[in-house]
Amino acid sequence: MTERQIRLFGDPVLKTVSDPVRTVDSGVRGLVEDLIDSVIPPGRAGVAAPQIGVNLRAFSYNVDGDVGYIINPEIVELSGEPELVDEGCLSVPGLWFPTMRYPFARVTGTDLEGNTIELSGTGVMAQALQHETDHLDGKLYLDRLDKESRREAMKQVRESNWF
């Protein structure tokens, strides 16, 4: 279909808990195509439906050349000792802050045919699974920052040329 414009910090859809996909119809199929097209450009590890203005539980991923999607993902396992990892977000362009993430994550959800699928991984994949699921829960990575880092992040947002 098409690469969609990424919604930026301040857009209310980014702070809204996404609705589950109840029926796979042509609209949902088009959404999945758009999510995949929107995650292909270099430097993108994931795109959640709210980031392209759609309040549904779905996201795409692009990690180490593995591109795909998941509908109605739920985190079923987080393990290892949480650690600070540098994190950014397409919806908060140009900002990177250390964010606490688990080193391993597993999510389950469905594909377009209703089959159960499972995604899991370490490193960037673990980070992407947590980050994109946060988007579906109406959270940005900025919400996970410690008080001092969040204060600095908000200052940088206010001073950015896109806000």
Results as ranks from 00 to 15, higher is better:
H131D: 03
Y141E: 14
S79V: 01
P82S: 09
H135M: 08
V85Y: 07
R29F: 05
R106F: 01
E132M: 05
F97D: 10
G109K: 09
R22W: 00
N55C: 13
T16L: 06
D143V: 09
D11T: 10
R144S: 11
I117G: 06
L145K: 10
E148A: 15
E113H: 04
E74V: 15
G68F: 14
E87M: 10
G27V: 05
E33G: 03
M125I: 01
D37W: 04
V21P: 04
V85D: 09
I36T: 03
L78C: 07
G27K: 15
E33V: 09
G138F: 02
F9E: 02
Y102G: 06
E152G: 02
G121S: 06
N72H: 09
E81S: 11
S160D: 10
S120R: 14
G80S: 04
K147C: 00
G94C: 06
W96S: 08
V24Y: 07
I6Q: 10
R150P: 08
S26E: 15
D25C: 11
T122H: 08
Y141G: 13
Q51S: 02
Q5A: 14
K139M: 13
T116G: 00
E33L: 14
S26P: 04
K155W: 08
Y69V: 07
V76A: 10
F9D: 00
W162S: 04
M1K: 10
L84S: 11
Q5S: 12
A49D: 03
F59C: 01
L119E: 01
S79A: 12
E113L: 09
E77R: 15
F9V: 13
G43P: 05
R158A: 13
G88A: 13
P93A: 07
V63N: 01
G65Y: 03
E118L: 11
E159S: 12
V107N: 02
D137T: 07
E132K: 06
E3M: 06
W162P: 00
V63F: 00
A48W: 01
V32R: 05
R4F: 01
G10M: 09
G138D: 01
L112A: 10
L31G: 04
L84Y: 15
R144I: 00
F9W: 15
P20W: 11
L14S: 06
L129S: 08
R44K: 12
S120A: 14
K139S: 12
K147F: 06
Y141I: 11
G109Y: 05
F9Y: 15
K147L: 09
P41I: 07
P50T: 10
V13M: 11
S26Y: 13
N161C: 00
